[in-house]
Amino acid sequence: MQSKGLTISKFVYSWLLMFAVWYGFTTSTALPELITGVIVSLVVTLITAKAAQCCGLDILLPHRIFYMVKYIFVFIIALLKANFDIARRVLSPSLPINPGIVEFETKLNSDFAKMILANSITLTPGTITVDLVGNKYFIHWVDVKTEDSEEARQEIAGDFEKILLKIFN
């Protein structure tokens, strides 16, 4: 998965992904539609193949799928918590915030996993990713609990990082 160049497995994976999006938008099982979808998604994949470097077919192994589903559930719960947290802060008259920017380093090494973690952090309670330099995340935190980077990592990204390490390594 760390190989940089375009492999057949990466190509087939993006082709499948493009076809899944096509099927999602047409939702028709008529044969002519499916054949058109295969051709269109092949063309799109040929054009975008250089940019689509995220992962190969080995991402579809069963234990990785299992952790992906788990990730989605953890993510949805965090998103709901984030919204109730923001609602509580906005609706209370004293506006209880103590904002600041903290930093921490991640153990993830693939670019795609880092991107997913950054996006997830933005949607979880009280945190928003300001920048990502190398392995360092800079997080704007509405209610800063700790300035220590290791504790901040546990507090902000603990669950997500554990699952992402299992998916991408």
Partner: peptide, 21 residues
């Protein structure tokens, strides 16, 4: 939240999360 928060970063916090969900 966008109305009540004091600066641009906190406004983004409120705006992003609730508009997404």
């Amino acid at each position: 939240g966008i109305y009540r928060m004091p600066d641009v970063y906190n406004r983004l916090q409120a705006g992003t999360k609730s508009s997404t969900l």
